[in-house]
């Protein structure tokens, strides 16, 4: 079986990359943000005395409770919003580096079905994101301890952890399209532009009645960024996400298998 070897090669390339540490730094930042906000919610007087909080901030945070539930809500929202960007950067890096470092031609001329490289890179992205998500959950539990929130209710951890995992799976299903844009453009700029454009589209669609049909809005709906969770999400939304994933995977494999590589 050659696929495990292709996967091993991708993991080796990843292990030696600085990108992996950068992504952890981002997630550390998300955790710090969550800690900071929860600390302000639990210590509003101290925050006001330090000039960290004003009327506006009080209003913005009014939807959050200063307990485990509020912390998980905050972490999920940060994880979804940040994860959409970070995972796209990860995928752009995994595919784009082959073009910017001039190694795509070496990879594609190997006597290995090209779909294996696409599958291996997406597996690596999924694994990387799973580790980041686990890191975020661990951060959440650590923040709760640091803020003396007491023992986390088991039911809440399971439910909110489940939400985070569902959101992570949905964010993952958007990534093959990012890979396709990267392979089509052969670099970093176009997929970055695509990622920003889809975030904007996703945000705009949330304000319309079409959010449940727009893949970039569905993640926000389920992640709770756009109001209460699962609001407006229907079975069709899941089919849209599955279709988005399939189009991305098939498109990337087809492009790498049949398009000219003139790098």
């Amino acid at each position: 079986m050659i696929f495990p070897k292709v996967l091993g090669a991708e993991l080796l390339k990843l292990r030696r990359s600085r990108m992996i540490w950068l992504s952890f730094l981002f997630y550390l930042f998300f955790g710090s943000m969550a800690y900071f906000v929860l600390w302000m919610l639990r210590n509003p007087e101290a925050a006001r005395n330090l000039g960290l909080i004003g009327k506006k901030a009080t209003f913005a945070m009014s939807g959050l409770s200063p307990d485990w539930s509020g912390l998980f809500t905050l972490v999920t929202e940060l994880g979804v919003a940040g994860g959409m960007i970070i995972l796209s950067i990860v995928v752009i890096f995994l595919f784009g580096r082959e073009y910017t470092e001039g190694t795509a031609k070496n990879m594609l001329a190997l006597p290995i079905p090209r779909g294996y490289f696409v599958a291996a890179k997406l597996c690596v992205a999924a694994l990387w994101y799973a580790v980041l998500t686990a890191f975020l959950l661990a951060e959440c539990l650590l923040i709760g301890r640091l803020l003396d929130l007491g023992a986390p209710p088991a039911g809440l951890v399971a439910r909110e952890g489940g939400h985070i995992l569902v959101a992570a799976a949905l964010i993952l299903s958007l990534q093959p399209l990012v890979a396709l844009v990267t392979a089509l453009s052969g670099g970093y700029i176009a997929p970055f532009g695509y990622t920003i454009a889809t975030l904007l589209i996703g945000n705009l669609m949330i304000h319309t009645g079409w959010a449940r049909w727009c893949p970039w809005s569905i993640v926000a709906l389920l992640g709770g960024i756009a109001g209460s969770r699962q609001e407006g999400v229907v079975l069709g939304s899941c089919l849209v996400m599955a279709g988005t994933f399939a189009i991305g995977v098939v498109g990337t494999i087809t492009h790498l298998s049949f398009a000219d590589n003139c790098q």
Partner: peptide, 28 residues
Amino acid sequence: VGFLVESATAYPNLTVRENLEMQRRLME
């Protein structure tokens, strides 16, 4: 088939040994 297409390229963050080891595994 062994090949070298245009410019010499390798994965910059990998050592010479790692680049070769990766190729060895992929080419079995």
